[in-house]
Amino acid sequence: MSTLYVLDIPENTAVATIAAEDPTVVVDKIGPYFEIRADGPLVVDRRATGCRHAVWYSCVAGVAPGDVITQHDKDALRVESA
C-alpha cells in the first residue's frame, strides 16, 4: 500500500484528479486533505496535472509511515512501500 496526503486547495486539485484516473488508485478525504492510496506504487504524472513547478514541488502534505517518495521531479511523483 502506498498512501499520499495532499491538501485540498485549488492549486492541488489536479494532483488528486490525475491520480484518480488510475483504476488502482483510491482517493478519499480526511478533513481538508485528499488521501490518495494505491495497492502498489502510486505514480502521478506532472505534465498531466498542469502544475507549475512551485506548486508541484510543494504539493505533498504527508506520506504514510513505511512509504517513501522514490521520485519527485519534473516528470512524476512516485510513492511506494519502503
Binding site: 478533513g31 504527508g62 506520506v63
Partner: peptide, 15 residues
C-alpha cells in the same frame, strides 16, 4: 512527511 501524515490522520478528520 511521515510524521505529518500521522498528524493528518489524528487531527484533520475532526477539523
Amino acid at each position: 512527511l511521515a510524521r505529518k501524515a500521522e498528524l493528518i490522520v489524528d487531527r484533520a478528520a475532526g477539523w
